[in-house]
Design a protein around this nucleic acid. Structure first.
Lengths: 342, 342
DNA sequence: CGTTAGCACTCGACTCCTTTGAGTGCTAAC
DNA sequence: GTTAGCACTCAAAGGAGTCGAGTGCTAACG
């Protein structure tokens, strides 16, 4: 059996309706819709076919039909017609984004806010992979005897810091000099190339080996541990509770638990391909707790080689259309705003 | 009518039981408890008195009694006997706290995690008021033509950054020189004294007035806006859903909404007095959404003059005892760990 | 006189039953 | 091929009955 024109039409109508209402859709409802000129009985026959083909599920015999994950896949791949955001809306989002543009973290944070507000779902933004960022500046700041704070400013203005031990007897001026030297040697190198640059420095006996060694190991630790909690920002975690899918507290709880585990979240949202928009529906995202969630992600650019990810987590029956438009727009906007800092 | 010994005993027994079960407590339950040698009938009489005095509420005639907010107040003020944490537990918490001690924000973040894990409630940690922190280091890092990132390292290693515009034609070396000068002039001054220090600098015509003006205004903006989102860290937001008080999704939602508004949260948790532990029960915290929550806060010290706050939000029937022990311990631990950075 | 046993009463929680209505599948007629 | 008609299904909503934890009151007890 194949999908003909009419089956597409009906499936689309069902999905559209279900996305709005979250209630099983009956044949009468579809029949009444404008653009569908068939009686409920005909619709029923088609629905029966669609169910057999795996596009519809029936919660129980006397309920309407519900789109299956297969149906959503078909929908996002072929059926969906993308709608543009109104320029008014773009305006508002852009403005909101700029309101905190004085601080870099603020921009990302408000981006998460804008995303979750605009979609009413939960948003996740992941900072670019640390290793791909380029170093702008390295500064060792004395904070106590034998202790210094190492501050690394990367392009995109993302600041990383870590405490390091320094050898006895180094004063602020020594650290200042070393900072300056490090900045010169490392500037514009991606973080992952740091080890190499360091080994070169270490061959040069003129610098303090112990301090450099410590510094290097701290940077490497940071690199290995990957993006940490502060690099995964969640917006509107509570939005999800608005939907009947999560009217059960237990479901809500396990959903929130996933959001708290930044590690899982990062893995979930980080995307394989360099595609514009990635959509993962239900079980496709491999996390049992999120079996009836879909995750839509896009990426934003920082500098020439670094990509961060922004994504929306919502129920599988989410408004893909709108989510995609919003993500697409915000991806560009975020790239723009962050590029200004370069 | 006055509270005699027996009434205290019974009230305490009721509160203890209700804290554990969240179910209205009946006279039989209390009578069976060890330490109370009275029959249910006697207990009932006393309960009736306690209700009249406003210490107990009755959800409906045929249910048991529930402690009122007034009862909790009495409990925390007079009835409660504090229990010590086991040294094993202290050990574990301290260890967990140190695991991320390489990064300052990491410490605060894991502190929030430890707090919420140890208490099973929601934790909030607020960084010290910006103005009271002392400047350790100021660095202007060029990020683009006419744009620089200003990084301010304060004591306690807390790093603040902001984008500023710089006049045309300044290169990295110029910024380096200015950074060095600024660091020298501002070091160890609290942030709130910066305006004064700047006006002195500005009188000196030798420095670039426009740049200094811009820098000052950015710092002032930061100061005025108060601690921002990244300075309010929430741990275990989902923990609250474990309790029957929040088995209603709507309540859960409005609770989560409060957690999202970092501003309200900060106001809520920031304490008036310099008291060791502050407890606000139910309506005492002035936020309608949190009418049946209690907030317990303690403070941690950063440097000599700055105080941050750590707090627990839980249902009014929370285990005050344990919460207080945990907060007390963590307050000290946090002060210790952060003081090491000085 | 304080304490307690006894008893009637209350009321939410639970179970069981019925009704309702939205929806289906099938068949026969158009 | 499409549709009207009809019997059938089943969750949801409403109502009656039962249960049981708990109360308040009264009278008796030490």
């Amino acid at each position: 059996m194949q999908l003909d024109e009419r089956k597409y039409l009906i499936l689309q109508a069902i999905i559209d309706d279900y996305i709005m209402t979250a209630m099983p859709v009956g044949s009468r409802t579809i029949s009444r819709k404008s653009g569908v000129g068939y009686s409920p009985a005909t619709i029923r026959n088609e629905m029966s076919d669609l169910e057999e083909l795996g596009y519809l599920d029936q919660p129980h015999t006397s309920a309407g039909r519900v789109p299956s994950n297969k149906a959503y896949r078909l929908y996002v791949d072929h059926l969906m017609k993308t709608v543009k955001l109104t320029s008014d809306e773009r305006e508002r989002m852009h403005e909101h984004l700029l309101s905190k543009s004085k601080q870099v973290e603020g921009v990302i944070r408000s981006a998460a806010g804008v995303l979750s507000d605009a979609t009413k779902y939960t948003s996740v933004i992941v900072a670019p992979k640390l290793g791909t960022l380029r170093i702008k500046h390295v500064q060792l700041v004395p904070v106590a005897e034998r202790t210094a704070l190492m501050v690394i400013v990367t392009n995109a203005g993302i600041v990383k810091d870590a405490i390091i031990r320094v050898p006895e007897g180094m004063d602020a001026d020594d650290l200042y000099a070393i900072s300056r030297m490090l900045t010169q040697k490392l500037a514009d190198k991606p973080l992952e190339a740091v080890r190499q640059a360091f080994s070169e420095l270490l061959r040069n006996a003129e610098y303090n080996r112990r301090l450099l060694g410590e510094t290097l190991s701290v940077i490497e630790q940071r690199l290995e541990s990957g993006p940490d909690a502060s690099d995964v920002i969640v917006g509107g975690p509570g939005n999800m509770l608005e939907y009947p899918e999560y009217s059960d507290v237990n479901k809500a709880r396990s959903f929130l638990a996933v959001l708290e585990s930044k590690d899982t979240l990062r893995r979930l949202v980080n995307r394989d391909g360099g595609m514009e928009i990635t959509i993962r529906i239900g079980p496709e995202n491999q996390v049992p707790e999120l079996n009836d969630c879909s995750i839509v992600t896009a990426s934003y650019r920082v500098g020439d080689h670094s990509n961060g990810t922004l994504g929306i987590i919502g129920p599988t029956r989410m408004n893909y259309n709108r989510v995609i438009s919003v993500l697409d727009f915000m991806g560009r906007a975020l790239s723009d705003v962050l590029s200004e800092y370069r």
